[in-house]
Design a protein around this nucleic acid. Structure first.
Length: 169
DNA sequence: GTCCCGTCCTGTC
DNA sequence: GACAGGACGGGAC
């Protein structure tokens, strides 16, 4: 494999945010962290040969920064999800259609992809979401109203903070 | 409120 | 191919 992988780390209101991308689109994202090195480590995760490019996905960077400033933005960047299982791709794709400030439940998301009872499998897929925030997996909550779980650094408290940020608009 | 079983997909053996 | 484990749901108690 000889594809070019680039990454960038930039500052937002919440801390440093990382993006990793190849020619096809975004591969991975890393939620804000106060320490830039931590972000790079989480983002690259042992990957070698990734090239730093501060102008990588400049438009998306701007949107993410605006997002953490509290403005409503729509992430429409191209994402490279080819290496993920079909079901996971479907789940992530459906997840992207959730409008900002709105939340749906795991079972509603399952219904969107034609498997109303696959809520558990949906959670499984979201747990593997490589691109948090851009794929708004934090907008998916449990049917009983509880926040559910979140695999990104910070866990469910990060999820809560993200929802609070969106709902106060 | 807590417990338990059903459900469906992925990763590992 | 089989099995265990999950960001869940819903009914039973």
């Amino acid at each position: 494999m000889n594809e070019t992988i680039k990454y960038t780390v930039f500052k937002t209101q919440w801390g440093y945010f990382g993006l990793l991308a190849n020619e096809k689109g975004v591969i991975r994202a890393c939620l804000p962290c106060t320490d830039r090195k931590t972000v790079e480590k989480n983002l690259l995760g042992g990957l070698e040969g990734a090239e730093f490019d501060k102008n990588l996905l400049k438009a998306l960077q701007g949107k993410i920064i605006a997002y953490f400033e509290g403005s409503g933005v729509k992430f429409d960047s191209h994402l490279a999800l080819d290496n993920l299982p079909t079901f996971t791709k479907k789940v992530l794709d459906a997840c992207q259609r959730i409008p900002a400030g709105k939340t749906i439940t795991y079972s509603e998301l399952a219904a969107m992809i034609g498997n109303p009872r696959a809520s558990r499998a949906v959670g499984n897929a979201l747990a593997k979401n490589p691109i948090p925030l851009v794929i708004p997996c934090h907008r998916v909550i449990r049917t009983d109203g509880s926040i559910g779980n979140f695999s990104a650094p910070g866990g469910s408290s990060t999820k809560k903070k993200l929802l609070a940020l969106e709902s106060k608009r």
